Simulated assay, not measured.
Amino acid sequence: MILAIITLLIVAFLAFSAFVAYKMVKPPRFIGDWTPKDLGYDYEDVTIETQDGLKLSAWWIPNEGPVVMPLHGYTRSRWDEVYMKQTIEFLLKEGYSVLVFDFRAHGKSEGKFTTVGDRELIDVLSAVDWLKKNHPKKAEKIGLIGFSMGAVVTIRALAEDEGITCGVADSPPIYLDKTGARGLKYFANLPEWLYTFVKPFTVLFSGAKELNMLEYADKVRKPLLLIAGENDPLVRPEEVREFYERNKNVNQDVELWVTDAPHVRTLKFHPEEWKARVRDFLSKHL
């Protein structure tokens, strides 16, 4: 009887861990109702076909300047109003052209599961392909501004795609397992230790491969602006600083800005300074 009860408890615990993992890799779709037209700009609804066969929903907003692609974070989409809407408006007012899409399994894009930075790199590379095919002159210089998961992809794209010129990585998770464990508490009010049991199921469901972001500190040799917040519950500023110090050894164009903001909230807490720093960075490198 005792053995049966213990077995039942173990099965129930594993089933709960699997349920949590499923919810993590299949976030709710965040879809809004505003468009670039509300910001005063004409745009096109476009579809980006990824290299692995998915269709991403996107907006193409042409302007006189080079292209910058804002990349949203986990659980969000291009409709996010905490940082995406403001970033899109800022870029358009600065004269940049904007291509913005929903990552796989987010917003209106296809995809059953998110891999939180792994296969999302394919999404960015496919967006670059779309630009080269449809707007080749605009594809000569491309900047990225990524937030959280989008910041991870920004760093990876700088290292792995020749078509990317420079990037801003706002609140980039460096130790993804630590951020994942903190995320359980932040998003679901669950204990961080549960992540040890949840992680294998996330890999099973999504097929994501494990990323070592510190390896990219040895690979990125293009202009990169890192932004970290002292009050970030998901990404410790010292983790971003570790990446920065290591990247400095191979990259003379890496910058670090540490603020007092929570996760991806520097733009909200310090909008004018964020815009000034990003404006200067893009003007210099793009």
Rank of each mutant, 00 (worst) to 15 (best):
D123L: 02
A127V: 00
E81W: 02
D102R: 12
P172S: 12
I164M: 03
L176C: 08
G111P: 07
K178E: 15
I145H: 14
N189G: 05
I164K: 07
A188Q: 13
Y175I: 14
S171Q: 11
G143K: 01
S171W: 06
G111M: 06
R119F: 10
P191Y: 04
A105S: 13
V116M: 12
K141P: 01
V152F: 06
I122V: 15
K178R: 15
L158N: 09
V152L: 08
G111F: 06
I145W: 15
E110L: 01
I88C: 01
F187W: 15
D129M: 01
S171P: 09
G183C: 00
I155A: 10
R182P: 02
P173F: 11
V152A: 07
I155H: 12
K85H: 08
M149K: 07
L92I: 07
G111H: 08
Y96Q: 09
G183M: 00
K93S: 10
C166V: 14
K178A: 13
F187H: 14
S109V: 10
G180S: 06
I155G: 10
S126E: 04
F90Q: 14
L99T: 15
F113W: 00
Y83N: 12
V124L: 12
G95Y: 02
A181G: 08
A157V: 04
V168C: 11
K141H: 06
F113R: 00
D170H: 14
A188T: 09
H135C: 02
I174L: 13
E162D: 14
K85G: 02
G167P: 06
D123S: 05
K133H: 01
T87E: 12
E140F: 02
V100Y: 09
L184C: 06
Y186K: 12
F90N: 13
F90Y: 15
V153S: 00
P173G: 11
